[in-house]
Every structure is written in C-alpha cells, then in structure tokens.
Design a protein around this nucleic acid. Structure first.
Lengths: 109, 109
DNA sequence: TTGACACGACACCGATAGGTGTCATATAAT
DNA sequence: ATTATATGACACCTATCGGTGTCGTGTCAA
C-alpha cells in the first residue's frame, strides 16, 4: 500500500484557492486554531471549517482538540503525489515546447 | 505578465481524473482527433469534448481543425505553475515529517 | 449525389460544491 | 453563577459540474 486512508483526491483538495491559502497559512506556523484561521477570510467560520474538513479527508491536515479550540496543522506528505504526477510532464516544457509557446516565452522574458 | 490568457485555473483543470487521463493520452502522441480520444472513455463524445474545452481554457491543450476532424495536442507549459507551487512544500516532507507520518512511512517501506 | 462521419452548439438534468444562518454544547473568563 | 467563546452539526440555498441526447452543418467516401 503506497498511500493511506485517502477519502478525498488530493488533486481535488488543492483545486480550491481558499484551501491552497489555508495550506499556506498552516505552513507558516506549527498549529493554528480554527477561529484564528477563519478571521483571515471574508467567508464565515462554517465555510472555513468545511474546507479544513476536505483537507483532512485528503490527509493534508491534522487536527487535535485542546480545550475549546481545535488546532490544525499541515501534513504536506500527500502533496508528493502531485509532485510525482507533474514531474512526469516536466520533460514536455523543457524540450518539447510548442511553437506558440516559444513565441510566448520570448515575449515574457 | 508571467502567464498568458488563463481563463481557467490550472489547479481546477487537473482536478478531474478524466482530464488527467486526457493529458496522459495526449502526452503519448503528437496530435489526436476528438473521436479517437472519445473512444477511450465510457462517456460520450460530448462530455469528452467539454473536458477538452476546459483544458483549452487552462492553456493545457491546443487544437486545430483539419478537414472534419479537430486535432488536439498537449501544451504542458502551464503545469509549471503546479510544479512551482508544490515545490515550495517539499521541504515539509523532507525534514518536517509529523510523528504520525513517520510511523506510516516506516510501515510503507 | 447520396450517405456516413466528425464536430459544435444547445437544452436539459441530477448531484455536488461552496457558501449561508442557526442551534446545542463544552470550555474559559468574570 | 453567569456570560462569552469556540466549535460541530444541521438545514438550507444557488451556481456549477459532469454527464446526457439531439440537431444542423461541413467534409469525406461510395
């Protein structure tokens, strides 16, 4: 068995910008309680909590209860699946650039 | 401007398994017409066409019309955004493994 | 020229995503 | 003891997603 209890596709979990921002926030501290995460967003606490649940289902986040708070921490390991997947295609933009892209590349630089 | 006309979030485009399989198929040949792609899936041609439209909106696919066929080709360049994003977090599974993950790692190997 | 084929453009549909507000409960602070 | 805080669990709503079938048109083959 190469991966753990993956209730949720990791690709799906990182598809949402809010969830990517949560991942970023959690990477900047060891543990952060829900209410502290929630104030970083315009949306309500309930919505943020749902996003964290999805991240949990993908194994990207761990939580533990301390007093009345729930502390969340990042678990980046499942992201390796993403890295492995995308690494396969890196050869296509190293060598195999399409003509259109070559032109766009030149413009950008 | 670092990226082109991105109508669609690349993270969103690769979130769907069907679309990832399309990307894979397109990586194995230069150009493939829609009908040939469609027969690889259980779903109908219309659905596959929609997925290709989404990939096109994300810049991951280019198409050109030849006779009555529409030929699709992979353009992997936008995947660099994914690689850059995930690379940032690689340090977290190289050094900063959680205790739970250490245990799971040991089991797996 | 007739028929098969490939496709785009629709209209349509059920399920899910992403948000809301409310309520009950456990914990902390006064 | 009372009040404020933090959260989970719901019910609910709307927009979007991922699929379907159909129709019209352009292209190729017989």
């Amino acid at each position: 068995m190469s991966e753990k209890n993956q209730l949720r596709d990791v690709f799906d979990a990182i598809a949402d910008p809010t969830r990517r921002r949560l991942i970023r926030l959690l990477s900047e501290a060891k543990e952060i309680p829900l209410h502290e995460l929630a104030i970083q967003f315009q949306m309500g606490r309930t919505a943020v909590s749902k996003h964290l649940t999805i991240l949990k289902e993908a194994g990207l986040v761990l939580d533990r209860k301390v007093g009345r708070e729930t502390l969340f921490r990042l678990n980046a390991a499942p992201l390796r699946e993403i890295q492995d997947w995308v690494a396969f295609y890196s050869k296509f933009w190293n060598a195999n650039l399409t003509r259109l892209n070559q032109l766009l590349e030149e413009e950008e630089e």
